[in-house]
């Protein structure tokens, strides 16, 4: 693997670390965009340029922008960042981190088991992807389309601003 992979990998890991340690959501989101861009580079290195483009356009472009707009819409001020600072004490994060690192160690151990043949990167061109998407996986594509449709309808329905109606359980506790 060339240096491109290592550099992009290091950037991805570091920026993700920054994501999970920021108190301010905006900062975290910007770091996450960096992380996504570096992952896109890795995609390119692994012979999937089309997927790298999709990663940048859809993930970094559309989804992240959606979240950023959302956060701006909620107008979360410095108070939220202060809450985050208050919540993120070592007592909270040390236990889960160790557990997750154990998980990581196990994963790496399993990945590093000798597999016989050393694989090299084989480029899969977008045409082959398109052929198989609209060939054997046409049903899955239809399902994905329906999922997106359901997502749109669900988001519209849930996100509608309506007269505030408290759920009866919540209502009772707020009294």
């Amino acid at each position: 693997m060339g240096p491109a992979f290592y550099i992009a990998g290091a950037v991805a890991v570091l920026s993700t670390l920054m994501v999970i340690t920021r108190y301010n959501i905006m900062h975290a989101l910007l770091y996450f965009i960096v992380s996504l861009l570096s992952v896109a580079v890795i995609f390119y290195v692994y012979g999937a340029p089309f997927m790298a483009a999709l990663e940048v356009i859809v993930y970094a472009g559309a989804i992240m922008v959606l979240i950023i707009f959302f956060v701006m819409m909620l107008n979360l001020g410095p108070q939220t960042a202060g809450d985050e600072a208050r919540w993120l004490t070592p007592r909270i994060w040390i236990g889960p981190s160790i557990l997750c690192l154990v998980l990581l160690a196990e994963l790496v151990y399993l990945i590093l088991q000798p597999t016989g043949q050393a694989g090299d990167v084989i480029t899969v061109d977008p045409k082959a992807v398109g052929m198989s998407l609209f060939g054997p996986y046409i049903l899955a594509v239809e399902l994905a389309g329906m999922l997106l449709m359901a997502g749109i309808v669900g988001a519209y329905h849930l996100g509608r601003q309506k007269k505030k109606i408290l759920h009866r359980f919540l209502e009772r506790t707020t009294e």
């Binding site: 557990l99 154990v102 998980l103 196990e106 994963l107 151990y109 399993l110 088991q113």
Partner: peptide
């Protein structure tokens, strides 16, 4: 989520212990 992680760790541990 913690429960899920614990479960994953345990299952992976069992796999590693049995297979490798």
């Amino acid at each position: 989520v913690m429960g899920i992680v614990m479960g994953a760790v345990i299952i992976l541990s069992v796999i590693i212990w049995r297979e490798y």
